[in-house]
């Protein structure tokens, strides 16, 4: 059976190529605002102790980023830090600060493009240069420091465990033999995997799924940054943050792509400048106090000028 099938093969190749071309044209016009930005490793000569690059309020950081907008990665479903309101606009504590940073960088608050990221994709977005800055409740860890460059912190965080008031988890010991809900790629997952391997973890990709699972009773508790849990427990009657500070006291900071020292230096100067005017406190009053209520001391959450006291 030796049939000549050259014609068939040619046709196959042609159709495969055609299909790919179709795919490209079909999606080419919907590629969003992401313009292709060549990696600029070499474009950033080391600038230790960088001189202040930002003019007061007038921008002047345009040469620090590739496009005409600064691309900032933020969360879209994590109130009160980063979420979309009913009109689909980004809002929250992180966004409040990020907008100011954009304004100081480019002179205009509207010259920011918020890229919606997931906890598990924050590092990837920076590494592949798809965002300039991540402003998404990004906890500073040694592991992440190897992959991205963190700027000065603006917030403190520890792990908390939220659980139903009816069956509260008040200490890690209470979790023995029970299931704990965590979100993949978070510090909570790492902490419990390393320090309490005996506790069974139920892992979810997305925050909203995880909270839904807690409500459905698929775990005895849910561990996540306490800053997030305070707000969530306040909004969801019947749940309490029984464990409010677990593990290391971590800090949260914006991050830039590894090696992007110019932007990093500018961002650090910017955070110091914001600290001088107590801007993070203003952000707290605007975005966090409504969610946390008055029972939480802002000094337990806010960091001004990168200085942890």
């Amino acid at each position: 059976m030796k049939i000549q099938s050259i014609g068939v093969k040619k046709a196959i190749t042609a159709i495969l190529v055609l299909g790919l071309a179709l795919a490209l044209t079909a999606c080419g016009n919907s590629s969003g605002a992401q313009t292709s930005a060549p990696p600029s490793d070499q474009a950033a000569p080391a600038q230790a102790g960088a001189q202040p690059l930002a003019d007061e309020g007038a921008g002047g950081g345009a040469d620090l980023i590739a496009g005409d907008k600064v691309r900032i990665g933020v969360f879209s479903d994590k109130p009160p830090f980063g979420y979309l309101d009913a009109n689909g606009d980004s809002n929250g504590f992180d966004i409040y600060i990020a907008k100011r940073v954009a304004k100081d960088l480019l002179g205009d608050e509207s010259r920011v493009e918020f890229v919606l990221v997931e906890p598990a994709t924050r590092v990837e977005y920076l590494e592949s240069d798809k965002v300039d800055i991540i402003f998404a409740n990004f906890t500073v860890t040694d592991e992440r420091k190897e992959k991205v460059d963190f700027a000065l912190p603006y917030m403190k965080v520890a792990l908390g465990v939220v659980s139903p008031e009816a069956a509260p988890i008040n200490a890690v010991e209470d979790l023995k033999g029970k299931k704990l809900i965590v979100i993949k790629g978070t510090t909570a997952e790492t902490y419990f995997t390393e320090n309490h391997p005996d506790i069974e973890l139920v892992k979810f990709d997305q925050i909203s799924e995880a909270f839904q699972a807690l409500k459905d009773g698929r775990g005895a508790g849910l561990s996540q940054d306490n800053t997030l849990l305070f707000a969530w427990a306040r909004e969801n009657a019947g749940f309490t943050v029984g464990v409010s500070a677990l593990g290391r006291k971590d800090v949260i900071a914006p991050a830039v792509r590894k090696g992007n020292e110019k932007l990093l230096a500018w961002l650090n100067d910017e955070l110091k400048k914001l600290g001088a005017e107590q801007f993070i406190h203003a952000a707290y009053e605007a975005e966090l106090r409504p969610a946390y209520g008055d029972s939480i001391d802002p000094e337990n959450v806010v960091i001004e000028g990168g200085e942890t006291r």
Partner: peptide, 14 residues
């Protein structure tokens, strides 16, 4: 992410 990292080609998410 990989294509962007390897070749600097920035594909849209879609």
């Amino acid at each position: 992410f990989g294509v962007t990292r390897a070749w600097g080609l920035n594909l849209s998410g879609e």
